[in-house]
Computed example of a mutant assay.
Amino acid sequence: MQVIRRIDELRAAIRKARAGNSALRVGFVPTMGYLHEGHASLLRAAREQCDVVVLSIFVNPLQFGPNEDLSRYPRDEQRDLALAEKEQADIVFLPGVDEMYPSPTKTVVSVSGVTERLCGASRPGHFDGVATVVMKLFNMVQPDAAFFGQKDAQQVAVIEQMAADLNMPVQIVPCPIVREQDGLAMSSRNVYLEPEQRQQALVLSASLKMAERLVAEARGQMDAGELHKAILEQIRQSPMADVDYIEIVAYPALQPVTEIREGMSILIALAVKFGKTRLIDNTIIRL
Rank of each mutant, 00 (worst) to 15 (best):
P239D: 09
A218P: 03
R18D: 09
P30E: 08
R189C: 10
D80N: 05
L202Y: 02
E77H: 06
A250D: 13
V178N: 02
E233V: 04
N167T: 14
I285C: 03
N21K: 10
Q255P: 01
G125K: 13
M240L: 15
M32D: 02
N21C: 06
C175L: 04
P104G: 08
L279D: 00
F127D: 09
F93L: 09
Y101A: 09
I159G: 08
M210Q: 15
A253H: 13
A13H: 13
P30V: 04
D69L: 10
L287F: 15
A17G: 03
G149R: 09
I91F: 09
Q142W: 09
L204V: 06
M100S: 07
A216K: 08
I159L: 14
Q171R: 15
V52D: 07
G129F: 02
Q88Y: 03
K86F: 01
V203R: 08
H36R: 00
V97Y: 01
E262S: 14
T132F: 05
E99Q: 14
E247K: 00
G96R: 13
V59N: 09
V249P: 02
I14T: 10
Y192T: 01
I285T: 03
F64W: 07
Q155F: 10
V26S: 06
G220N: 08
L94H: 13
A89V: 15
L24Y: 05
E194G: 08
H228W: 07
K136M: 11
Q197N: 07
M210S: 11
S265R: 14
L83D: 03
L94I: 07
I91T: 02
L166M: 13
N139F: 01
F28G: 10
V92N: 01
Q78F: 00
T107K: 07
N21E: 08
A153H: 11
V158R: 09
L208D: 03
L184F: 07
L227Q: 04
M210W: 02
L55F: 01
V29R: 06
Q78K: 13
R189F: 14
D223P: 01
